[in-house]
């Protein structure tokens, strides 16, 4: 996965970048399955590798496919991103270890979901139950965001066709 990202960062052929992006998404989906997030992995595989690759290729078709060489060597961005990374790495020292059952994430809210779900909702897939029932508002807002993004794309891309008609 890291290699794929490095090649994406270096390559200037945008077509190659996009195909590698699809590959990267599949690798990420595999990692997510290993992390027990089957729902998320399924979404990542279909959305990341499927739809966004198609969209990127579609956009690429409308633009040119070669990236021009940057004028100066990218030292400043490299330093900035490494500095941000160093600060974040310092931050991770305070975080709980991988797979620590006593970490805060495992001790709040979730035990309630896992124990009382059976009586309250009785849907075996906890992710579905939490998504649609316990956090219905989140999902409603999020569906609205998707709708709004769709409306935005329509607003951006439709105007030209109207201009042409008269």
């Amino acid at each position: 996965m890291a290699v794929t990202v490095l090649v994406i960062a270096r390559s200037r052929n945008l077509f190659g970048v996009i195909v590698l992006g699809g590959l990267y998404s599949f690798l990420m989906a595999t990692v997510l399955v290993a992390m027990d997030a089957v729902d998320v992995a399924m979404t990542e595989a279909s959305v990341g590798a499927g739809i966004s690759t198609v969209l990127l290729l579609g956009a690429l078709y409308l633009c040119k496919s070669e990236e021009t060489r940057p004028v100066q060597a990218p030292w400043l961005p490299l330093v900035v991103s490494l500095a941000v990374g160093a600060v974040l790495a310092y931050g991770t020292l305070g975080l709980p270890e991988f797979s620590d059952p006593k970490a805060p994430i495992h001790t709040h809210v979730v035990p309630r979901y896992l124990t009382e779900l059976k009586q309250e909702v009785d849907v075996p897939n906890v992710v579905t139950a939490v998504l649609a029932s316990y956090r219905g508002y989140d999902t409603l807002g999020e569906t609205t965001v998707v709708f709004t993004a769709g409306a935005g794309v329509i607003a951006l891309l439709r105007r030209r066709r109207k201009d042409r008609k008269p």
Binding site: M35, D36, A37, D39, V40, T43, E44, V47, G48, I51, S52, L55, L56, I105, H106, V109, V110, Y113, L114, V126, V127, V130, L131, R135, D138, T139, E142, V145, V146, A149, G150, G152, V153, L156
Partner: peptide, 23 residues
Amino acid sequence: YSNPLPHVLILTAIVVGVATLAL
């Protein structure tokens, strides 16, 4: 069981992500 709560949050984040990518 692994923690389901992050799964829910990220599930929605992915779909929103592709919508914003399209935008």
